[in-house]
Design a protein around this nucleic acid. Sequence first.
RNA 1: GGAGGGAUGCCUGAGCGGUUGAAAGGGAUAGUCUUGAAAACUAUUAUGGGGUAACCCAUCGGGAGUUCGAAUCUCCCUCCCUCCUCCA
Length: 423
Amino acid sequence: MLDIKFIRENPELVKEAVRKKMINFDVDRLLQLDQKRKELMLSVEELNKIKNQANKEIQQAKDEEARKNIIAQMRELDRNSDDKSQEFKKTDEEFQRLMLLVPNVPDESVPEGKCDADNVEVKTWGKIPQFKFTPKDHIQLMKDLWLADFDRGAKVSGFRGYFLKKEGLMLCMAIWQYALDLLMKKGFAPMGAPAIVKQEAMTGTGYLPQAKDEVYATTDGMYLVGTSEVPLMSYHADEILNEADLPIKYAGFSPCFRTEVGSYGKDTQGIFRVHEFMKIEQVVLCKNDKQESVRLHEEITKNAEEILQGLGLPYHVVVNCTGDLGLGQVKKYDIECWVPSQNKYRETHSSSYFFDFQTRRLNIRYKNKEGKTEFAHSLNNTGIATPRVLMPLLENNQQADGSIKIPKVLYKYLNFKEIRARK
RNA sequence: GGAGGGAUGCCUGAGCGGUUGAAAGGGAUAGUCUUGAAAACUAUUAUGGGGUAACCCAUCGGGAGUUCGAAUCUCCCUCCCUCCUCCA
């Protein structure tokens, strides 16, 4: 959510943001509503003032006669004030509804574009492997090595269902531990976060009402999170933090659920795009300062790069174009790992910052050195997501004999160094 | 799932339907005193909105209602606690 004052003073900037992010939103209508709301609020307050005064007079009234007189007058007044306050309530509700749909303004450095095809590569790392044999895709590898069962996954869980088996699961667990250890060394506090949350948490982080179709709801009105960013950001909702404690860094671990509507036909096979997965997520709260947000954004992006470098996975970093930004995001980098079978990079990480867009919705503030309360800034990035990362990991590390070489950094978490073909 | 109890400011904790935006204590901040510290004393100490300002409006978990008037009464919701039940 943006500050209404900012929208009033910079309507053109907001309209530009709407255009660039390709969102359907009428800024002028919001501003009209804002004006109307302000006027109604003033008249409601004026009526309240009169009522409050009259109530005091009733208390101090000398006799029953005087009391009754004032009460009679009040009744008259109430008839008018009811209409006004009803109108104010209606206007305010609509205003609040629209405020949740106003997009954040993208940074100047974000390239303009429509979709992920317009994202701009800013960095590459690692050597793309040259195979002297025909490499298999991850699906074939996982089937051959008994790392997953997709047929029974579909039987039990439906479309995009999967079972992780044997070394497939052990590998995932090793990767979690590896990523968590690395992030803990960087000062991130590990947090096991709930995956079932209330609506406020989804709205506060900006997934509702905007992306309603993409989240699962439970029968009792709760929601399944698509990332632990949701519970971890909500963790400090309605709190006033101390500036000295910032930045706060969490490494959240939770299952993640995504309906993947709108992705029909995309990545229908394998473990790249699934309805449920596990993710370690970097979540950061910092002070209300653009430089600090930018600095930390680079930092959490580097953390993810370090995780991938340790795993030896070739990747590139793209800066997402305006059309590929979420409602609240100011800027976003996607890190994409090389996938030999597809001969291209595929997204494994997403690193973004929001300024106070989320913290305004969640009411997360802190006391600054002058003793004033300000909204914090928020950022987040993937640490590692499984099983998705297995796709580049298995494919890039496959050997001519069909086995998989395990990256050295995972040795300490596993009792095997390669996964051999089964007979 | 069943039966009760509760939610008040930074914290603890009072609060008869009408100067209660809210007692008291603690904490914090500033000042006096002191070589310094402690103690003592004094003062300040909620948030949001509007206004140049005086000041005004809203807020006692959230929402709806009763009333001229609600922290206080009624209903619904959320959360917490105790007991029973169930359970990885």
